[in-house]
Design a protein around this nucleic acid. Structure first.
Length: 851
RNA sequence: GCGAGAGUGGCGGAACUGGCAGACGCGCGAGACUUAGGAUCUCGUGGGCAACCGUGGGGGUUCAAGUCCCCCCUCUCGCACCA
């Protein structure tokens, strides 16, 4: 145990500011005294300040991580000094593919690499001086944690929000697993960039679509970046329109279509079904059978990527069948075409080529009629899709009982929708782009599903809550399969010859044997006792990060996911900082789970994260994205070796606005080091003792003003996360104080407090040198006197015709008359004796003579 | 194509509701202290000899525009046949 008296004496140094010694000393102090622990039963106001917890990769922290972590650390330290009870925790999102792929390659168990990586991350974080409450640390891979992840899954299952379905999935042969839509970028896996194929598969799916409306609506409740709100809205993709029934000609049945433009119903000239639509077989005539089946086969062979290729010609086939337009009784030919997707809306559309670009292109290609029902465009040349311009025409029933003619499209839409509903020909309808969330992965390193498949019960049976956690069994066989396809330039190839990319691998858990030699998956049904099989898929990495912010509130609770009283005290997260790459994935999934937990009474808030900020990407010195191959990766450990943690922290914040993408500059870190050394010399002499320049005398009024202006600027900037300008103000203060021969304690001490959240090690040491007791982090934040933030003299720019011609200096209380009189003297040569047409004086700002 | 954000010195970036463009830092230049300086300190530093010109380009509103309005260009991010 370190004796605390050690921290009362300044570290002796012969050569000025020694960041190594100072940082080691104060990190040891914090380790012993734990000033950053959050207390649950506090009467203080709370502040929950959260970082997106990292996946502990093998390469350690990078400077991009540090940007966000430093920002939340400054806010946390600042809020503590402002009297808040701050919860600032850290943990590990440690399930996932990289550790498992490493295990496949090396045979080293993912648990081992994960533990090593966590140790590295934690060491680096402590070295940066991040003020986490380490008592609350956990990893998503801890059985005590994933027990509750499994528990939430059971709740989802109970409520019918987790179900097994045979759905077309994104199968990645190289990774040997299915992927969520959100994990695919441009037809390739987000991780590794491997090709993904579409195939039907029996899978666990979470019914996120049941929450689509609330996920959209509640975006109003949060303070998030506009771009992120926009991305979530787009991803949810709500569109409001109508469903309309078209009766088939000469047979029973109707085609139901979804349209956002019911106002163009009278302009429909044909119908299109998705090639997979079940009615295709019904409507296809004998004569068209061959053409239809040829087209369907061709579509089935196409990958999603091919099918979605842009600028390609629209293709399709006529089925021979017809449907009736409910508003005018017209017979419309029914086509199939792959531009209509089975997965959206009803998988069928009414085609209005005059007012829809896709229909227009298709009609052109197959020479189908184009009928204009909204004037205002040139439908021979292009589809006219505007809803705010143009007038509806040719849109009345034959008997004249109903008409939308003469209306603007945006007016016609609600009118015809209402009429369709009354006539029982259609209904108002809302559609979402959002699809249900494919939740299973055929992997080892993830949370096992607390589910048993029982042949007797003939359905998935949940484990009881008391059986949790269902611990991930031990194995040495992590491979997705014996033969994993390798992706080459010419497509997939197996390691043992040709391979079927459509082959489904058994998940590794299916092969795991217990010590007695039996298979892990062999078990008995919790419901009927019959022999049954465990689910062998595992949950995706997103599962653990969906609710971790709740566990930090009550990390050791063995009875509940979180204690309700503690949850009510700490939630919501007040500030959440992390990368924008999670704008849809993690942030949408977490919001979904949170709403489910809200519905079952586990949480008290509708939304988990009140304020969200994305730190910008840190580029290499060459202005390029940091990457190993470019060799421009900046290593935080090396930077800290050279310049110290405080300098790295300060520089991270000084680079530019938190949200902006900006390049690293080692020269810039040097500049920051010079600033810290100047701060040091402000109050410490050559021998490392308190400088004789530091005096107890009352500071001059000018210096007091500078201090109060600095307190004001730093305070306000920290509140809105503008750390770069806060630091620049501290530099201004330091530069001014450096010039002064006498530096009053009354100035220096508050300044050290301002510096403390930014450069905590240096601030602790300076505080000690000033003879004060630690910890500086527990001192109250300085308060500024507004009266002292304004100067008593002010400089007024004098303009003639808006051009700066002179400046005058006057008392703060100077009257307009005085300012004008003094100004006229200054700019006499510009006025040349003439009387100005107009004189504009902006109080305490500027005076402008118009001649 | 659609949506969001952004274009300011040699560089990173400041500039509250329209009111001194370029704070602060880097770099650069000069000087001081020095045996020495890649340490430190001081001063200077948008362009132009100047009148003047300068916030991506072009119009406009205004006494006054980086900031407001219209048109255009470039870059970044996201979505992408979503009916």
């Amino acid at each position: 145990m370190l004796e605390s008296s050690r921290f009362l004496k300044p570290t002796f140094m012969s050569k000025g500011y020694d960041h190594h010694a100072i940082e080691a000393k104060w990190q040891a102090y914090w380790e012993v005294h734990r000033p950053f622990r959050a207390v649950d039963d506090s009467s203080k106001p709370k502040f929950y300040c959260l970082d997106m917890f990292p996946y502990p990769s093998g390469s350690g922290l990078h400077v991009g991580h540090l940007e966000g972590y430093t920002a939340t650390d400054i806010v946390s330290r600042y809020k503590r000094m402002r009297g808040f009870n701050v919860l600032h925790p850290m943990g590990w999102d440690a399930f996932g593919l990289p550790a498992e792929q490493y295990a496949v390659k090396t045979g080293i168990h993912p648990a081992i690499t994960t533990a090593q990586n966590i140790a590295t991350f934690k060491r680096q974080m402590k070295r940066v001086g991040l003020s986490y409450d380490w008592d609350r640390e956990f990893s998503t891979t801890d059985p005590d944690y994933y027990r509750w992840t499994q528990w939430i899954f059971l709740k989802l299952f109970e409520r019918g929000l987790a179900y097994v379905a045979e759905v077309p999935v994104n199968w990645c042969p190289a990774l040997g697993t299915v992927l969520a839509n959100e994990e695919i970028v441009d037809g390739k896996s987000e991780l590794g960039g491997f090709d993904v194929v579409r195939k039907p598969m029996r899978q666990w799916v979470l019914k996120i679509t049941a929450y689509a409306d609330r996920l959209l609506e509640d975006l109003k409740l949060v303070e998030w970046p506009a771009s992120t709100l926009e991305m979530q809205k787009n991803w949810i993709g709500q569109s409001i329109g109508a469903e309309v029934e078209f009766a088939l000609v000469n047979q029973k049945g109707t085609i139901r279509v979804f349209t956002t433009r019911p106002d163009t119903l009278f302009g429909a000239t044909y119908m299109v079904l998705a090639p997979e639509h079940p009615l295709v077989d019904v409507v296809t005539t004998i004569g068209q059978k061959t053409a239809v089946s040829v087209y369907r086969d061709a579509t089935a062979r196409k990958s999603d990527l091919q099918r979605q290729e842009l600028e390609k010609e629209k293709t399709g086939a006529f089925t021979g069948g017809y449907a009736v337009n409910p508003v005018n009784g017209e017979r419309l030919p029914i086509w199939i075409a792959d531009y209509v997707l089975m997965s959206y809306g009803t998988g069928a559309i009414m085609a209005v080529p005059a007012h829809d670009e896709r229909d227009w292109a298709f009609a052109r290609h197959y020479q189908l009629p184009i009928r204009e029902v909204i004037t205002g465009g040139k439908v021979d040349e292009a589809a006219f899709t505007d809803t705010e311009r143009g007038t509806v025409v040719n849109s009345a029933t034959a008997d004249g009982a109903f008409s939308i003619n003469g209306l603007k499209p945006s007016e016609a839409i609600p009118k015809i929708t209402e009429w369709l509903a009354k006539q029982r020909k259609g209904t108002k309808a809302v559609n979402y782009k959002l699809r249900d969330w494919l939740f299973a992965r055929q992997r080892y390193w993830g949370e096992p599903f607390p589910i048993v498949h029982c042949p007797e019960c003939d359905k998935p049976v949940p484990l009881s809550e008391s059986a949790l956690p269902l611990v991930l069994p031990e194995t040495k066989d992590f491979k997705p399969d014996i033969d994993v396809p390798q992706q080459t330039d010419s497509g997939y190839r197996g390691t043992t010859g040709t391979i079927d990319v459509m082959k489904v691998f058994e998940a590794p858990l299916a092969r795991v044997r217990k010590t007695d030699g039996s298979l892990w998956r062999e078990t008995s049904c919790p419901k009927c006792g019959a022999s049954a099989e465990r689910e062998t898929n595992t949950m995706p990495q997103w599962a653990g990060s969906c609710w971790y912010y709740l566990r930090f509130i009550d990390p050791k609770n063995s009875k509940q996911l979180v204690d309700p009283a503690k949850e009510r005290y700490w939630m919501p997260v007040d500030l959440y900082i992390g990368g924008s790459e999670h704008a849809v994935l993690h942030l949408l999934y977490a919001r979904f789970w949170h709403k489910v937990l809200f519905d079952i009474g586990v949480v008290s808030t509708a939304e988990p994260f009140r304020k969200l900020v994305h730190q910008g990407i840190v580029l290499g010195e060459d202005n390029q994205k940091m990457s190993k191959s470019r060799g421009n990766v900046v290593n935080p450990d090396e930077m800290m070796d050279q310049f110290g943690a405080d300098a790295v922290r300060l520089y991270e914040m000084f680079m530019g606005p938190l949200e902006a993408m900006k390049p690293w500059s080692t020269r810039g870190v040097e500049g920051i080091t010079r600033f810290l050394e100047r701060v040091w010399r402000l109050m410490v002499n050559e021998e490392g003792r308190l400088s004789s320049a530091v005096v107890s005398a009352t500071p001059s009024l000018d210096h007091q003003r500078l201090l109060h202006q600095t307190i004001k600027k730093v305070t306000e900037d920290v509140e809105v996360h503008r750390f770069n300008t806060a630091i620049s103000q501290m530099m201004v203060f330091t530069n001014e104080m450096t010039k002064a021969e006498q530096r009053a304690r009354a100035l220096i001490e508050p300044f050290v407090l301002l510096l403390a959240p930014f450069a905590p090690h240096l601030a602790e040491e300076l505080w000690a040198i000033l003879g004060r007791r630690p910890s500086v982090s527990q001192q109250p934040w300085p308060i500024f006197d507004p009266a002292l933030t304004v100067s008593e003299r002010m400089t007024i720019p004098v303009q003639v015709n808006g051009k700066l011609r002179s400046k005058i200096e006057v008392e703060h209380e100077a009257t307009r008359d005085l300012v004008e009189r003094l100004s006229r003297e200054q700019i006499a040569e510009w006025l040349q004796g003439k009387e100005p047409k107009k004189v504009i004086y902006v109080e305490k700002k500027l005076i402008n003579f118009v001649v």
